[in-house]
Amino acid sequence: MVEGKPLGPLAGPAFEIVDPRFAACMVEGAAVERIWTGSRWTEGPAWLPDRGLLVWSDIPGDRMLSFEPATGRIATFRAPAQSPNGNTVDRQGRLVTCEQTPHRIARTEPDGTMTPLVDRIDGRPFNSPNDVVVTRDGVIWFSDPSYGRDRSRRDDDGVSGCHVYRFDPASGTVRQMTHDFVMPNGLAFSPDERLLYIVDTGSTERADGPNHLRRFTVATDGPLGGGEVLVDADGGHFDGLRVDTEGRLWLADDQGIRCHLPDGTLIGRVLLPERASNLTFGGAARDTLMITATTSVYSCRVNATGAAP
């Protein structure tokens, strides 16, 4: 079992103001705290409000770890863990996880048992589910790039492209929702769930590939509309993102976390000493950024409230 305590605040400023409007998001005197370190790639932070617990994925270690702010305790949440990646929490407080080894979405029940939810579409297996969100109606949306699948097998195992899918646990229906992504990655909905934001990290797959954030309109049981590029990484690397109650976008990149207005305007950053992979809003007031990065997990209070998971 992993046991430990938070490692303390980082030296230097937590915030970088790009636009004066970012000042409203800052907490005076707030610092970036390093919660844990010791991985080659952390991912998938999720806040379990009923338990006051942050969980995240240590992908190379094939395990999930947890942090309890009330006690400062860090422990193993699950190991082995089927090469876990993205995580989220549904409206019943259950953890929903992208498991790369069995190429599926699975749910952790209140008693700790695992329920496999979906692992294929039209008889074809998924690549390696990467990130996941659950809407108010309980429908699960997830991205499925091929990062977690053996490159030598990508063309001969029945997988068809890299897409975003929509799975309805009530009906068992799974639908492919995108058709033109190279590597769909992080995704998040606007607070009213009328807009869906999806990152394409295709530049990691091919030299001329994209690394940007696209915006889609969401129709009830219909196809996605729009799909225009809202923010480009400009040579950098995006990954996961979350949205606050004001519709601002908090986006992981090489320097830490970027904050954008809903129209795409960059207004500020939360600075880290390494590349960030993903984030969530945690704590009782959902006003603490909890961030996974290359080797470590960080937290920082902000004057913003995360939209419902």
Rank of each mutant, 00 (worst) to 15 (best):
G186M: 03
L187Y: 05
L187H: 10
A188Y: 01
A188P: 02
F189Y: 03
F189E: 01
S190Y: 02
P191D: 02
E193G: 14
E193D: 12
R194S: 14
L195R: 15
L196Y: 11
Y197S: 13
Y197L: 14
I198D: 06
T201P: 08
T201A: 02
G202L: 05
G202F: 04
S203R: 14
E205F: 14
E205V: 11
D208N: 06
D208T: 13
G209H: 01
P210H: 07
N211R: 04
N211W: 01
R214Q: 08
R214T: 01
R214A: 07
R214F: 09
R215W: 05
T217K: 12
T217V: 13
V218L: 03
V218F: 06
A219W: 05
A219F: 03
T220R: 14
D221N: 15
D221T: 09
G222N: 14
G222H: 13
G222F: 14
P223D: 15
P223Q: 10
P223V: 14
L224M: 15
G225W: 07
G225H: 11
G226S: 09
G227H: 13
G227Q: 12
E228G: 09
E228H: 05
V229L: 04
L230K: 00
V231D: 01
V231Y: 00
A233S: 15
D234Q: 15
G236E: 15
H237D: 05
D239T: 11
D239L: 01
D239F: 12
D239H: 07
G240L: 03
G240K: 01
R242T: 08
D244K: 06
E246N: 12
G247E: 10
R248I: 10
R248F: 09
L249C: 06
W250F: 06
L251V: 03
L251G: 05
L251I: 00
L251N: 10
A252P: 04
A252V: 01
D253N: 14
D254T: 15
D254A: 15
Q255F: 11
Q255G: 13
Q255P: 02
G256V: 10
I257R: 00
I257A: 07
I257F: 00
R258F: 03
R258I: 08
R258W: 07
R258L: 10
L261V: 10
L261I: 03
L261N: 04
P262F: 09
D263M: 12
D263E: 15
D263A: 13
G264C: 03
T265L: 06
T265K: 10
T265N: 01
L266R: 07
L266Q: 09
I267K: 07
G268W: 00
G268Q: 07
R269Y: 02
R269L: 11
R269F: 03
R269W: 04
V270N: 02
L271G: 06
L271R: 15
L272I: 05
P273D: 10
E274D: 12
E274K: 01
E274W: 01
E274G: 06
R275K: 07
S277T: 12
N278R: 02
N278Y: 04
L279F: 09
L279T: 09
F281Q: 00
G282K: 09
G282P: 10
G282Y: 02
A285S: 13
R286A: 11
